[in-house]
C-alpha cells in the first residue's frame, strides 16, 4: 500500500479528469483565442490570414477606451456595493433575531436566479410605463412623471444596482460563514471591557474577516468583469454606449460586426486583467497558507 511509486502517481490520477477537461475545454480554445486575435478571423470561416496586429488597434480607439471606462465604473461601483451591502447584511444577521432563519434563506435567493431571468424581471420592475417602482412612487406622490431607469445617465446606475442585487448573496454567504467562527467568549470579554462597537469591529471582527473578505472580493470582481447577459438583455449597451461593457463589446464584435479577430483581441485584454486578479488572489492565499 505505501509503496513509493504508487504514492507518487496517485494524486495525478485523482486530478487527471479535471486536467483532461481543462486541456480540451479551456486550453485548446484559449489557444485559439490567441490565434484568432492575430489575424482576420470570423466565426464562420475561423482564422483566415495574419494581419499584423491590426485587431489590437481597436483597443486604442476612443470608442473602446470609453467602454473600458464604463466597465471600470461598473466593476468598481458594483463590487464596492456588493462588499458594503454584503458586510452589513451578514453582520446584521450574525446575532439572533426573530425569523433569522427565514431572512437567511431569503437573502440568498438572487444567487440561484439565472442571470437571464434576473434581467427580464428587473426590466419589468423598472419599466417606465407599467413598472412597479414607478407605480409605487407615483402612488406615494413622490414623483409626478415616471422615472426612466434605463435612459441617459440613469442606465449605468441601474445596471450596477442589479449587479449588487445579484452579487451580494455570495458575499453574505462567505462572510456569514466566517463570522460564526469568531469565538463568542472573545467578543463577550471585550464587551465587558467596555469597548465600543467600533473598537470591537476594528480589533475583533475585521481581522477575522479580512482573508475571506479579500478572497470573496477578488472573485466577485472577476465575476463582475465578465457580466454579459444581464446588462445585454436590459440595455444592449445603450443608451449611446453608456452601458457598453467590455463583455458586450466582445459579443458585438463577434456577432454584429462579424469580426472575431478583434473580439478575441479584446478577450485577451480581459483575460490578462482577470489573470492578474487571479494571481493576486492566489498569492494572497498562499501567504495565508504559509503563515
Amino acid at each position: 500500500m505505501k509503496q513509493k511509486g504508487s504514492r507518487r502517481i496517485e494524486p495525478y490520477l485523482f486530478i487527471l479528469p479535471t486536467i483532461i477537461l481543462f486541456i480540451f475545454v479551456l486550453a485548446v480554445p484559449l489557444f485559439n483565442v490567441f490565434k484568432f486575435s492575430l489575424g482576420d478571423s470570423n466565426i464562420i470561416e475561423g482564422f483566415k490570414e495574419w494581419n499584423s496586429f491590426e485587431n489590437f488597434e481597436y483597443l486604442t480607439t476612443p470608442r473602446f477606451l470609453k467602454s473600458l471606462g464604463v466597465t471600470a465604473v461598473y466593476v468598481v461601483c458594483g463590487v464596492t456595493g456588493i462588499v458594503v451591502c454584503g458586510m452589513l447584511v451578514a453582520l446584521a444577521l450574525n446575532k439572533p433575531m426573530p425569523l433569522r432563519g427565514l431572512f437567511r434563506s431569503i437573502v440568498i435567493i438572487p444567487w440561484i436566479v439565472p442571470h437571464a431571468f434576473a434581467a427580464s424581471m428587473w426590466s419589468w420592475v423598472l419599466n417606465s410605463q407599467f413598472g412597479f417602482i414607478n407605480q409605487l412612487l407615483t402612488k406615494l406622490n413622490l414623483i409626478s412623471s415616471p422615472i426612466s431607469f434605463l435612459s441617459d445617465g440613469t442606465a449605468l446606475p441601474t445596471v450596477i444596482m442589479v449587479r449588487i442585487w445579484q452579487g451580494t448573496p455570495f458575499m453574505i454567504i462567505s462572510l456569514m460563514a466566517v463570522l460564526q467562527t469568531i469565538p463568542s467568549d472573545i467578543e463577550e470579554a471585550i464587551e465587558l471591557d467596555g469597548a465600543s462597537a467600533i473598537q470591537k469591529s476594528r480589533y475583533i471582527t475585521l481581522p477575522y474577516l479580512r482573508p475571506v473578505l479579500m478572497t470573496a472580493t477578488l472573485i466577485i470582481t472577476a465575476w463582475t468583469i465578465q457580466i454579459f447577459d444581464t446588462v445585454y438583455i436590459m440595455t444592449a449597451g445603450g443608451p449611446a454606449r453608456q452601458t457598453q461593457l467590455v463583455a458586450i463589446e466582445i459579443y458585438n464584435k463577434a456577432f454584429i460586426d462579424y469580426d472575431l479577430g478583434t473580439s478575441c483581441a479584446i478577450a485577451i485584454l480581459v483575460f490578462i486583467i482577470v489573470g492578474i486578479i487571479g494571481f493576486i488572489k492566489f498569492k494572497n492565499e498562499r501567504m495565508v497558507e504559509d503563515a
Binding site: 475545454v25 480554445p29 463583455a247 478577450a267
Partner: peptide, 25 residues
C-alpha cells in the same frame, strides 16, 4: 501550486470570451 492556480483561473474565464472557441473545438 500550479494546479491550484489553474483551477482558480477556470472559474474566472469569461464565458463570452471562451464560448465561440469552445464551440469550434
Amino acid at each position: 501550486t500550479f494546479y491550484s492556480f489553474i483551477i482558480f483561473i477556470t472559474q474566472v474565464i469569461p464565458q463570452v470570451v471562451i464560448a465561440i472557441p469552445i464551440f469550434m473545438t
